[in-house]
Computed example of a mutant assay.
Amino acid sequence: MPKYEIGIIGLGKFGYFLGQSLTDLGHTVLGIDNDSEKIKRAQDVLTQVYKADATDKAALVQLGLAELTHVIISVGHSMEASILIALHLKELGTKNLWCKAVSTEHEKVLKKVGVDHVIFPERFAAEQLARELVIPGLIDYLPLGKGVILQELRVSKWAGKTLRELDLTNKYGIQVVAIKQTGEADFKFVPKANTVLTKEHILAVIGKEEAIKDLEP
């Protein structure tokens, strides 16, 4: 996995935990905030932290934000601040700019400014939770098209058959991406087509939600 140099502007809950996760994954993370308490909390977690007003273009230049591989703007509910910061960064040549939005109107303005990726963390978390509540075995809800999910299926009726015989890809547009035995902690990825299934098997499949829910595995 390549290692990136990532800037996070705004070290509230979302920015802080995003930075912590990226640091844990081995990336270099530079955090910026104008709140001394937030800087203090993040200084032992992120690679580098700076107290600065990111709406000041000169500060962004001094900190070299535009030279980083990714920059994420997460400045709470301040639409004006996030738009101004985004405008400055695009003018400075930032190549991969992400920004947290608080409304669809905010999103529209950010895209007009040139932000590459607009994110709604609360909306995504709510959609994910809703599906986890009502879809047994859901592993993830994927933004690969409407209704694409990654879900666990416990084998019952398919016992004694191979993945080749089931032909799930051609029949249902579903792909088995991993398999494990009941009691095993980890999945084994890309199972062989001649794998004979038993009632002890659990499959991780990816496909359209409506196709998966109609299966009787």
Rank of each mutant, 00 (worst) to 15 (best):
E152R: 07
V45L: 09
E127C: 07
A59T: 14
F187G: 08
I6Y: 11
V196W: 11
G12S: 10
I135T: 06
E107H: 00
E37Y: 10
K57A: 15
Q175N: 14
H77T: 05
V102E: 15
Y172F: 14
L110Q: 06
V134W: 05
I73L: 04
V118W: 04
D56M: 05
G173R: 15
Q175H: 09
S36F: 13
L11S: 06
I179P: 06
K111W: 07
L11R: 00
G207R: 09
T28R: 13
F120K: 01
D116N: 04
E132G: 14
T47P: 14
E122V: 07
I139T: 00
T169W: 07
Q128H: 11
I83C: 10
L92Y: 03
A211T: 01
K213W: 13
G12W: 09
A204K: 00
D186F: 10
Y141A: 09
T195V: 05
A66N: 08
E165Y: 13
G137H: 02
V134N: 11
M79D: 04
V118N: 01
I73W: 02
Q20A: 10
G15N: 01
I149Y: 05
T47S: 13
A54N: 15
I179D: 08
L87D: 09
R123P: 15
K213T: 06
G15M: 09
W158F: 11
K112R: 06
I119M: 05
I83V: 04
A178P: 05
C99W: 00
A159M: 08
N34K: 03
A42W: 12
K192T: 13
K146P: 05
L30V: 09
G93P: 01
G19I: 00
V102A: 14
E210D: 14
V155C: 11
T104N: 05
H88M: 09
G15F: 07
E152S: 11
A42L: 01
M1H: 14
D214E: 15
V118P: 02
Y172R: 12
H27L: 08
K95F: 12
Y50S: 11
I9N: 01
A204F: 07
V177L: 12
V49L: 13
V113E: 06
Y50G: 08
S21I: 00
D56I: 04
G114S: 06
